[in-house]
């Protein structure tokens, strides 16, 4: 660990934001849904801007359950990947350089995902944050929560298990 003069804040921010941008831009379905990630330190918040194509029930109207499920799952996968990248990115050396160049390890694979639909998704922006409850060498368990207007009034939550990418392939 470099205990010398700390890096300028702009350099740190630029590096972290560029890595996040490269990671999210590499996933076509994430771009299709127009999901963005906002970062404060290592904490990520996903945002799903409302669009007519996300509607599942035109009569209410309400977001499609599949959209809500996708949003939760993508947030979980990105959070899990981000949390494993963070130490490498901050550790310097060849691993950090590879991440900066956009060379990410394979994404974790979803084993199972259980979605709890608490109330219907309104036709407006949605937000989500995931928490990695357990991250082992092979398996990880992630919980994710989504809300709209009020952070404390979740409209959906989910728990998923993931198979971590193995170094030997």
């Amino acid at each position: 660990m470099n205990r010398g003069k700390p890096e300028p804040v702009q350099v740190i921010k630029q590096r972290r934001d560029a890595a996040l941008e490269k990671l999210t831009a590499s996933i076509p379905y994430l771009s299709y849904l127009d999901i963005r990630f906002e970062r404060m330190g290592d904490e990520l918040t996903a945002r799903l801007p409302f669009d007519e194509k996300l509607i599942g029930n035109p009569a209410l109207p309400a977001l499609h359950g599949g959209v809500t499920g996708s949003f939760l799952e993508i947030t979980a996968v990105i959070e899990l990947t981000w949390s494993t990248l963070w130490d490498r990115m901050e550790g310097g050396g060849p691993e950090a350089a590879a991440i900066e160049a956009g060379e990410f390890p394979p994404l974790p694979k979803t084993i199972d995902f259980t979605i709890d639909y608490l109330r219907s998704g309104l036709p407006r922006d949605a937000y989500a944050r995931a928490r990695v409850n357990r991250s082992g060498r092979r398996y990880a368990s992630v919980h994710v929560e989504a809300w709209q207007d009020n952070r404390s009034r979740l409209f959906a939550q989910a728990t998923g298990h993931f198979l971590m990418p193995q170094p030997d392939g």
Partner: peptide, 27 residues
């Protein structure tokens, strides 16, 4: 559809797409 890919390295559809189809079909 290439727009619905979840892992660009493999070209496999995103889990969310599978979720959306299963949810719709179940409904």
């Amino acid at each position: 559809d290439a727009r619905f890919v979840g892992d660009p390295k493999t070209g496999v559809l995103a889990g969310g797409v599978v979720t959306a189809l299963l949810d719709t079909c179940a409904g």
